[in-house]
């Protein structure tokens, strides 16, 4: 019985690590940020779920299983949310660049913070303006 639990846990851990590695190779190979979200968001969440399930099988029916369940629930909710927020931000940036031209400083990560992205040019607000 204990050997079978070890085998099941090993299979789950191995497939979780495999998905993580495949997703990371995808992040390295894809050309654009929007395409890398496809690799990172899906395989990251799936690999996390599989690895946490494998650890749960190894922990048995103790308190550790409930803690791992809480970690799994938090990650299953927050990873897709972060991916969606990132892709929405990229879509807004692309839409605004098509209208006004690309902001090279922002795109290449220079931290001058001179061009607030989404705000229209007529906004009166307290943040950094040009």
């Amino acid at each position: 019985m204990s050997v079978m639990m070890d085998v099941v846990s090993g299979i789950l851990l191995f497939s979780g690590a495999f998905f993580m590695l495949v997703g990371t190779i995808g992040i390295l190979r894809f050309p654009d940020a929007m395409a890398q979200i496809h690799a990172a968001g899906i395989t990251d969440t799936l690999g996390v779920a599989l690895i946490v399930l494998g650890l749960m099988v190894q922990a048995g029916f103790t308190l550790l299983t409930i803690k791992l369940l809480v970690i799994l629930a938090v990650l299953l909710f927050t990873n897709p949310t972060a991916s969606h927020a990132l892709s929405r931000s990229i879509a807004h940036y692309n839409a605004r660049s098509a209208r006004e031209g690309h902001n090279k400083e922002l795109e290449f990560g220079v931290t001058n913070n001179v061009w607030p992205l989404i705000r229209e040019s007529g906004d009166q607000s307290q943040g950094n303006t040009e």
């Binding site: 997703g23 990371t24 940020a33 990172a40 990251d44 990873n79 972060a82 990229i90 922002l106 990560g109």
Partner: peptide, 14 residues
């Protein structure tokens, strides 16, 4: 670009 670095940092966190 900065978006790719944000994505990589999130994946590193996980």
């Amino acid at each position: 670009s900065v978006f790719e670095r944000i994505l990589a940092a999130n994946s590193f966190n996980t």
